[in-house]
């Protein structure tokens, strides 16, 4: 007794299931489910508030991309929130170091270097680093309006330069 469609099949000889047919029907069903997922996803892209703004999707409230900062020109005040050793080794030209442990002293130094209409962008060592966000929030709470933190941190700047 042989399988009619091909010589190799599951369940042979009592209950033959042709591999070719099984594979094709599985692919068809996968495609059907794929289409079933695309429809609500397409609606969500236009309706969900977190997906509607594609440029900012995934960014936190004070987070900016390097491309956006580049559009602001040379007036940006960069704040390096990495360790003093990393800052001494290499940093963004013109950047000032920020010691989070001595916050009051550090904020005084930032205010001396800052001037109105000059955005402040804080960065730290890695994409997952949260120090830059914490500093940006504290600077906002201290009364500075134009403060952001860099998406991707130092690694993003290094990759682009």
């Amino acid at each position: 007794m042989r399988c009619a469609c091909e010589p190799f099949a599951f369940g042979w000889p009592t209950r033959p299931v042709c591999l070719r047919d099984t594979g094709m029907s599985t692919l068809r069903e996968m495609l059907f489910l794929l289409v079933g997922a695309i429809v609500p996803a397409a609606v969500a892209i236009f309706v969900h508030p977190q997906l509607a703004d594609r440029e900012r999707a995934g960014l936190r409230p004070l987070e900016v991309r390097l491309e956006t900062v580049a559009d602001w020109g040379d007036s940006v005040l960069w704040i390096d929130a990495r360790s003093p050793e990393e800052f001494a080794r290499q940093t963004i030209p013109g950047a000032r170091h920020f010691d989070f442990d001595q916050f009051d002293k550090a904020i005084g130094e930032i205010l001396l270097a800052w001037s109105p209409n000059k955005p402040i962008v804080v960065f730290c060592s890695a994409a997952s680093c949260t120090t830059s966000e914490a500093i940006a929030r504290r600077l906002r709470e201290a009364g500075l309006d134009d403060v952001y933190f860099l998406h991707g941190g130092w690694e993003a700047w290094l990759a682009a330069n």
């Binding site: 489910l33 794929l34 695309i38 609500p40 996803a41 969500a44 997906l51 999707a57």
Partner: peptide
């Protein structure tokens, strides 16, 4: 962005 928009619905 596209993975995050689509994958949850494929899971559902």
């Amino acid at each position: 962005y596209w993975v995050a928009a689509f994958l949850p619905y494929l899971e559902i």
